[in-house]
Design a protein around this nucleic acid. Structure first.
Lengths: 148, 148
DNA sequence: ATTTATTACATAGCAAGCTATTCAAGTGAT
DNA sequence: ATCACTTGAATAGCTTGCTATGTAATAAAT
C-alpha cells in the first residue's frame, strides 16, 4: 500500500494553512498589513508596549523571525521601538496611533476568512476543528518542554 | 468580547502546520531533503517524468514556486530535467537513481511525524482531523473554480 | 502565411519562516 | 573588581511561499 498524501495529516494541514493565509492576505492588504504582522498586532492591540521576548513567548515564533518581522513593521510605520529604561537590552514595541485604530477592521477581516474558509463545515465540525488544533499544539508544547 | 487567537481556526492551523513542518524537517534532513521538495518527490516516486505543469496541478503550488523548488532540486542532484521532444515548452522531471531508492525511508519519516504530532489524539480524532482538512480543501477548490 | 492568443516555464522581488552565530547588557561568583 | 554566564536582540544566510512580469514555443484565427 502506497503512502497517500491526501490521507497525510501533515500534507493536508500545510495545504489548509496556505488556504487560510491566502484568504487573510487578500483581505488585510487594503489595510496595509500582511499575515506575518497580524499575530503581533493582535498582541499589541491587547497589550501595547510588550517586549520582543514577550511577543516571542506568546506567539511561538522564533526570536530571529520576530526580530525581522518587527523590523519590517517599523520600516512600514506600524510600530515604534524604544529601549527600556531599566534594562538596556530590551526593546519595547509600541503601536503607531493609526494602527491602534485598525483593530475593528482587522478583526472583521480575520473572522470573515475563518467563516468563509470553514463554510463547508457544520457548526459542530468547526468547533471540532478548533479543538483538534488546540490539542495538537498542546501535545507539541508538552513534548518541547520535556525535551529541554 | 475580544478576538481570541487561540479560538481562531486560521491562527491555530498556521501554528499546527509549523509544528508538522518542523517535525518533518528534522526527520528528513538526514536523507538530504527538505520539506518543500517532499510533495514533489511523492509525485515523482509514483510517476517519474512528470512535467512541471502536472506537478503544479497535482500539488496546488503556484507555478513560480514550483519552478524555484525544481531548480533547487536540480542544483542538489535530486532530479534532472529535459525538454520534451514533441513540445519544446515542456520540461520533464526525472528522479536521480539514488533518490528513487529513498522512498521507504522518506515515507517512514512522514508516517512517524504524523503519528508523533497527532499522539495526543484518539484514533477517531485522527480520522476526524483528516476529514476536516479534506473538507476545507474541497471547499476552497470549489470556490476557486467558480471564480475563474 | 502572418498575426494573435495561449501555454509552459523562468525570473525578479518580496514576506515569513527557520538555524546558527554574534554582540551588548545584566547577573553572579570569586 | 573581574571573569564567566545568561539573557535580549540583531544579523547572516537559507527555504518555501507568493505576485507580477517576461520569454519562447505552440495553437488558432484570419
Amino acid at each position: 500500500m502506497t503512502f497517500k498524501k491526501n490521507q497525510s495529516a501533515g500534507y493536508l494541514v500545510n495545504h489548509v494553512a496556505r488556504i487560510f493565509a491566502h484568504g487573510l492576505a487578500e483581505r488585510i492588504k487594503p489595510l496595509g498589513i500582511t499575515i506575518g504582522t497580524f499575530p503581533v498586532l493582535l498582541e499589541l492591540w491587547e497589550t501595547d508596549g510588550l517586549t520582543q521576548k514577550q511577543l516571542v513567548d506568546r506567539l511561538q515564533i522564533e526570536q530571529a523571525t520576530m526580530a525581522n518581522t518587527l523590523a519590517r513593521m517599523e520600516r512600514d510605520g506600524l510600530i515604534i521601538r524604544n529601549k527600556d529604561k531599566n534594562d538596556g537590552r530590551v526593546q519595547r514595541i509600541w503601536l503607531v496611533e493609526h494602527v491602534r485604530e485598525m483593530y475593528d477592521a482587522a478583526i472583521a477581516a480575520a473572522m470573515e476568512v475563518n467563516a468563509s474558509t470553514l463554510a463547508g463545515l457544520s457548526k459542530a465540525e468547526r468547533r471540532q476543528f478548533i479543538i483538534l488544533m488546540q490539542k495538537v499544539i498542546e501535545t507539541s508544547r508538552n513534548r518541547v518542554s520535556h525535551a529541554s
